[in-house]
Design a protein around this nucleic acid. Structure first.
Lengths: 193, 193
DNA sequence: CAATAAGTAAACTGATCTGTTTACATTTTG
DNA sequence: CAAAATGTAAACAGATCAGTTTACTTATTG
């Protein structure tokens, strides 16, 4: 019990740093953010940061993993909580989820996509952590398409993912969810084809 | 004549720097590249760089403009040179163009998209230069859709652009042009709907 | 109680960053 | 020819970067 409290205490500092790193990296970019900015925002010492993470890169990987955990769960929950019964309709709820985020003011895009862009061809481990998120989302879509007995569900899932990622980028430009609604209607068409 | 030579000489140095900056930024990222790397690659002095550009940001804007000039022209030419006569088929040649690039080994994505990601919410002028490219491409697609008397050609052009940009991202992951072919087939379906 | 783990503060290293300055060379052009 | 434009080389400024080190504090736990 006391041992458990200690373990929680350890991961509390670690988790606090990951969350703060996630927030700052998300809004400010990766190369543009120094470790000092994260240290200062938490009040946790730099020494402690480097006890938990071997490098800035390690902290970024942890932040990408954290983003995946909360975002994938939020999307999966959003679909499962819906009253829709057609699995294809459920799959396309990812667009509604995204529209809700954008309408709530999140214009920072996909954290994993941003990380992958900044570290393309430069940090294999970061890229791999980002791919986990994208592949999991593709898998989630594919699962619902398979439930609908759709043939070549993987190809269709990839096509939906491309519309989804394109919609993320475009909504950053328009600063509203209009392109997301267009992306969803395009996805509907290719699903019923 | 001599005056012209001088003007050419002036812009030769400038152009050389823009091209070199474009190459290095494209492969190495923006924040990750110091101006010294560009200076060293050209043999042109730093002083001269800062006579032509007020800041690193100015050089990035020039590089984005340069990318737009060559890329938009290359895509427009690729379409115009084709023997296809259906305007919708012509519009969808952007996917073939992209597939050709990726098959030739370009896995660096869209230069403008990368720049916009790194400077989102941080450098309005860079973002604006990037938007010029994306909007021009959207306009090009829309032009061909209008020729085909397609109604709501703008919405359809946006949907195609989202597939296009999603395909760029996804092909970076697969390192091949397979997702681009999937994106094109999805675009075909929504065009014939 | 004593060992151990986990923490803090702050100076420091050595590199790199953008941008400036000084001093000088070359070329163009009125 | 002389002025103006264009260029080079290289040191420099001042900030910031990732990461380390030293010296000290606190809390947990066998």
């Amino acid at each position: 019990m006391e041992k458990k409290i200690n373990q929680v205490s350890k991961s509390q500092k670690r988790d606090e740093m990951i969350k703060s790193a996630y927030d700052i990296f998300y809004k400010n970019g990766f190369h543009a953010t120094g470790v000092d900015a994260i240290v200062d925002s938490t009040g946790i010492s730099k020494r402690t940061l480097y006890k938990h993470f071997t490098s800035k890169e390690g902290l970024i990987i942890a932040a990408v993993n954290y983003y995946h955990e909360i975002m994938y769960r939020a999307i999966a929950d959003y679909i499962e909580k819906s009253t829709l019964d057609q699995p294809v309709d459920k799959a396309l709820l990812i667009f509604d989820f995204l529209a809700k985020l954008v309408d709530a003011g999140n214009l920072y895009g996909c954290f994993a996509m941003n990380a992958k862009t900044e570290y393309a061809h430069k940090a294999v481990e970061i890229e791999a952590a980002c791919d986990v998120h994208t592949n999991a989302l593709k898998g989630l879509i594919e699962k619902y398409l398979s439930e609908a007995k759709i043939k070549e569900s993987e190809s269709l899932a990839i096509q939906i993912m491309m519309l989804f990622e394109g919609a993320i980028l475009r909504s950053k430009g328009t600063k509203n969810s209009l392109p997301i609604k267009l992306a969803k209607s395009a996805a509907k068409i290719i699903c019923s084809q």
